[in-house]
Nucleic acid binder design. Structure first.
Lengths: 189, 189
DNA sequence: CTTTTAATTGACCAGTGGTTAATAATTCAG
DNA sequence: CTGAATTATTAACCACTGGTCAATTAAAAG
């Protein structure tokens, strides 16, 4: 009946992002469907494809904010007024907390390999890791090898990868997380 | 035309498992479709559902073998004729090698949470972990806490979780794997 | 006022896992 | 040996998925 809406009802990128983000907070990348986003926005799913190339494109746009969020988190941890050892511990725990409190996003950021937008996503992930690595280097008392930093990152990643799914929020895994981090910190003191 | 095949052409559980396994070696759980399995078997996909409750059921049947394989791997490592420290290192590397050489299977074993058959799969995973933990306990020179064993498992899991997707075979990540394991072993000597 | 451009729809494609009535081959019982 | 019960299979169907595209209409430009 109306292959174009009135100006007041027109769709914007922001509206789509907002709705997608809303659902993305409670559902996996795979469980959020373009069709359902469209339905909640009161438009056809085809309309979304006018604003975004594809699903990966839309969700990568969302994910970018979370990369920034993570980067900011790393920066903040370094600037804390505490001793380096404490800060290092906080950095590790903060990463885990981020991963477990943004599980759907973390999955897309560090677990899924998206054929399409992968290049961009990969770059952002590398960038975040670089920040992480610099922070560790800076906070570790003795000189640490890049290998050890990478190993500790993978270990944290392992924790998040495992507890996502068996836990809804970081708090539920807090105790175990601390033990995990203590294990890792033995190598940085 | 023929709602039942001649006895000689009848479908068996084994035939289905074989074909599914074949595809599962090269494709994800998600990328192997019941319909394609059926096509390659020359039957309709509905027929498979006569033999297996659903996709998860079929694939869990396959996965069971891989849990056994992993368990055997752990046992074999302990029985090696080497010093404990070497065996511990080999155990860690063997786990990584298993994960990276059976990526699709590893995903289903330790990464995906299957609503349906999850109880069984989870149990098998716990069982394998128990074996792993016992082996570590036995091989570690000093007494180690269960927390440390769990932490090291998660760290190995993190390595596999990361390198799956960026690597096709363990060999491609061998060097990095060794560094990762050395990092972990510092806590067990 | 007309033309151009931008945004939207809805039908469509090819694919997914899963269900089920109908049916034919096989097995079982008398 | 025959007829009934059982078993295995098919094909049509359901409700989804991501994605494309011609047609259409609102708005903007000339």
């Amino acid at each position: 009946m109306s292959p174009r809406k009135r100006a007041s009802e027109e769709l914007t990128k922001d509206m789509i992002i907002q709705e997608a983000q809303l659902q993305f907070e409670k559902k996996n990348f795979r469980d959020v469907s373009m069709r359902n986003i469209a339905k909640n926005l009161g438009c056809s799913h085809g309309a979304i494809y006018y604003h975004f190339k594809n699903k990966a494109d839309l969700f990568f746009t969302i994910i970018e904010q979370y990369f920034s969020k993570l980067n900011k988190l790393i920066d903040e941890t370094i600037q804390d007024k505490e001793d380096d050892q404490t800060k290092l511990k906080k950095l590790f725990l903060a990463f885990i907390a981020f991963g477990l409190n943004h599980q759907s996003q973390y999955e897309l950021m560090f677990m899924l390999r998206n054929e399409e937008v992968d290049a961009l996503s990969q770059q952002a992930a590398n960038n975040s890791y670089r920040k992480f690595a610099e922070a560790v280097q800076h906070l570790a008392s003795h000189t640490v090898t890049v290998a050890d930093i990478w190993a500790s990152f993978l270990a944290l990643h392992g924790f998040v990868s495992y507890y996502r799914g068996s836990v809804k929020k970081y708090e539920e895994a807090e105790v175990t997380a601390e033990m995990h981090v203590n294990f890792l910190l033995k190598n940085f003191s």
